[in-house]
Structure formats: C-alpha cells, structure tokens
C-alpha cells in the first residue's frame, strides 16, 4: 500500500513538471551579391548592443492579440543568444557581407567608425499567427572625434507563416534582414558623401511599429 502511494506521488510530480526549453535563433545572413561598401577602406568596430527590461533576457517576449501592451515572457521559448547580442552579430555580418571591414567587440584593431545600438523591440505580437517585430536604434560615430556619423532608427515586421517555432524564427530573420538592408544602404550612401535626409526612422511598415 505504502509503495503504491510513493509511486503515485512520483507519477504526479512527473505530470506536473514543465516541458523542456525550446530554443530559437537568428541565423547570420548569407553574403549578398552586391558589395556596396567594398574597396573604400571602411573599417567599423561593432560594439555589443544594449537592451532594457525583459529584452535583456533570453526568453521570447510576446504580447497576446487582445492585450498588445501587456508584454510577457515565454516560459519555454528562449533565444540561443539574447536579442542585443543576436542583433549586433546579425548587423555585423550584414555589413561585412556588404564589403566593410568589421572588427568585433574586444578584438584589437583601429577602426574608422564605431557602431553601437539599442534594441527597442524584439517581440512577437499575437493574432491568428504571430507577427515578429524588430526595432533598433543604430548609431555610427567617428572613432577619433566621437562625433555622430550616422544615426538611424529602424523597425520591421514580418508575419509568421504558421504557428510553429521555425516559422517564428523565419519571421524574425526576415525582419532583421530588412533592417540590415536599410542600414547597409544608409551606410553606403553616407560613406559615398551623400547626405541622408532624416534617416530617423527608416524601415517598412513603420507606422504600426
């Protein structure tokens, strides 16, 4: 009888345990065909981006459709790297792919410019499926004088194809790709001497970001 009770207790504990973590990640972009930043000796130092609140943690931040302002953290869905790390790594890869020399944070080197950024949003908004929203403030400053060289805010959205986690991952990937494309274009324009007219904010579908 006593053995039976102990077994029952173990079974109950097993039923009540939380499911295992499910990780998602932002894959680095593939090198593009065009390299608008190559050959100009543009050397950038990429600093680790910053974030505040729940975005500093690895758990996916989301909001249900009925309460878009009530941000929550997923219990089992976690980023492999925190959004601030993933975002700076993605943009560094995008700039490198475009032909710039990017020096990673902590690696020796003398850059012309320093890239820093703040992750404003990196969350999933609920609906029939989810909508991945990425919003970043990026600042590129002169390494010697410290003066701002390019300052821009980017925001992009992408709807998930279905309710699966790979779809969520692809949606964030698409949003980041859009932001990276804008950053590369703005950097190329600025480096070519063109004045960027009011680069704040940029990105598609900004009105709903």
């Amino acid at each position: 009888m006593r053995r039976g009770l102990v077994l029952l207790a173990f079974l109950a504990a097993g039923c009540g345990s939380l499911p295992a973590e499910r990780s998602i990640r932002i894959d680095l972009p593939a090198p593009p065909a065009a390299r608008p930043l190559s050959g100009d000796g543009l050397t950038l130092r990429m600093l680790r981006f910053t974030a505040s609140g729940p975005l500093q943690e690895r758990n996916l931040v989301y909001a249900e459709a009925g309460a878009p302002d009530d941000t929550r953290q997923a219990a089992t869905i976690v980023w492999e790297a925190p959004p601030e790390v993933a975002a700076s790594a993605y943009l560094a890869a995008a700039l490198t792919g475009a032909g710039a020399s990017v020096i990673g944070n902590g690696i020796p080197g003398v850059p012309n410019y320093v890239v820093s950024g703040v992750v404003q949003r990196f969350d999933l908004l609920g609906g029939a499926t989810g909508t991945a929203i990425a919003s970043l403030d990026v600042s590129i400053s002169d390494a010697k004088s410290g003066q701002a060289w390019l300052t821009a805010s980017y925001c992009a959205k992408a709807v998930t194809a279905d309710r699966s986690l790979p779809a969520v991952q692809r949606a964030f990937q698409a949003a980041m790709a859009e932001i990276a494309a804008h950053l590369v274009a703005d950097t190329a324009a600025r480096h070519g001497g063109a004045a960027i007219a009011a680069p704040v904010p940029r990105g598609s579908r900004l009105s709903s970001c």
Binding site: P19, A20, N59, Y62, R72, I77, G126, G130, R163, L165
Partner: peptide, 16 residues
C-alpha cells in the same frame, strides 16, 4: 520573479 507562460498563438511544447 517574473511570471512566464508560453504564447497561445504558437504551438505548445510537446509533453515529455
């Protein structure tokens, strides 16, 4: 302490 729960619009984690 932050209360965490998974989003309703994403497939839930499979039970082990």
């Amino acid at each position: 302490r932050r209360e965490r729960s998974d989003p309703s619009f994403v497939d839930p984690a499979p039970e082990k």
